[in-house]
């Protein structure tokens, strides 16, 4: 079963379909079969604690059509910075309990260094620009988590993500 490379939805996430999607046969324009030597994968999980609070679950919401565009933007940036890397990126929305995955990423490349870097870059950029929000439900209350101002044109943020990815 093949999955889209980029997706957002309420279904539970798993890495295996993403790994298959990036390491399997490509379209005519893509690299020849067998040319990848590495897949790096990342799974982001809901943690049971945050800032000293006991977390019960998170609720994610997204502006889904723009989130997909953000993922396309991130994939294009990744391809520009690490040519030949193939990226898959899925984010989950809705209620996600402790231990379950909120985001799954896989990056395939000829060599491991680019696969690791592209994978790390993608999650950093998701956190910077994707129109997705989490509300934390903890012991005694709930709070919207607010991180970065979403601006895909902010080159300083992009450079910061690239530095982290290549550290």
């Amino acid at each position: 079963m093949s999955v889209p490379l980029l997706a957002i939805g309420s279904a539970p996430l798993a890495l295996e379909p993403l790994i298959a999607a990036v390491s399997g046969p490509t379209e005519a324009a893509g690299p020849a079969p067998g040319s990848y030597g590495a897949v790096a994968a990342f799974l982001g999980l809901v943690r049971n604690h945050n800032l000293g609070r006991a977390v019960h679950y998170l609720e994610y919401e997204a502006y889904e059509p723009l989130a997909l565009r953000a993922f396309e933007h991130i994939a294009a940036e990744t391809a520009e910075r690490w040519p030949g890397v193939r990226l898959a990126l899925h984010h989950r929305v809705g209620r996600i309990v402790v231990g379950q995955a909120s985001v799954a990423i896989a990056a395939a490349s000829a060599h491991r260094a680019d696969a690791f870097s592209a994978c790390r870059y993608a999650i950093e950029r998701v956190k910077q620009i994707a129109p997705i929000w989490k509300r934390e439900f903890f012991e005694g209350g709930d709070v919207w988590i607010e991180g970065a101002t979403a601006d895909p044109g902010d080159q300083q943020a992009r450079a910061a993500a690239e530095r982290v990815a290549c550290a």
Partner: peptide, 10 residues
């Protein structure tokens, strides 16, 4: 027209 508060995906 959509207004996006600071994001927190991931």
């Amino acid at each position: 027209v959509a207004f996006l508060p600071p994001v927190s995906g991931g």
